[in-house]
Simulated assay, not measured.
Amino acid sequence: MRIRMITPAARGSRSGNRATAERWARFLRAGGHRVDVATDYADEPADAMVALHAWRSAGAAARFRDRHPDRPLVVALTGTDLYRFQASDPDTTHRTMGLADRLVAIHEAAADDIPARFHDRLTVIIQSATPPPGPRQPVRGEFRALVVGHLRHEKDPFRPARAARRLPPDSRVVVHHFGLAPDAEWAEAARAEMANNPRYRWHGEMPRWRVRRALSRAHLLVHSSRMEGGANAVGEAIVAGVPVLASAIPGNTGLLGRDYPGRFPVEDTAALTDLLRRAEGDPDFYATLTKHCRQRAPLFEPEREAAAWRGLMNELTAS
Rank of each mutant, 00 (worst) to 15 (best):
V104I: 13
R296M: 12
P138E: 10
H94N: 08
R34Y: 05
I6V: 15
A129M: 09
S128K: 00
A21K: 00
H223Q: 15
A25K: 01
E154T: 10
G32L: 09
A129Y: 02
P8T: 02
V175P: 02
A42H: 13
E44G: 08
N314Y: 04
R278G: 01
D268G: 07
A195Y: 05
Y41F: 15
H53R: 04
S13K: 04
G134E: 13
A25P: 00
V75P: 00
E22Y: 04
V124C: 03
W55G: 00
F64P: 03
L316T: 06
I6G: 02
A110L: 04
R310M: 09
G98S: 05
F143G: 05
T269Q: 06
D91A: 14
G59A: 14
S57T: 01
A116N: 09
L220C: 08
L245T: 02
G16K: 01
R67Q: 13
P298F: 09
D70S: 15
A87N: 06
A240C: 11
A46D: 01
T269V: 14
P198Q: 06
T78A: 03
R11K: 10
H177V: 07
R95W: 01
T130N: 13
R23K: 14
P160C: 11
L28A: 01
P135E: 15
R34K: 10
P198I: 04
A19V: 12
L312S: 04
A145S: 13
H219L: 13
M206A: 15
W24V: 11
S57A: 15
I114C: 03
G229D: 00
R2I: 08
D70K: 12
G311Y: 02
G134H: 12
E280C: 08
A30M: 09
L99I: 04
A116V: 13
G251S: 08
D156L: 11
G254S: 10
N17T: 04
H176V: 15
D47A: 13
G98A: 05
L180N: 03
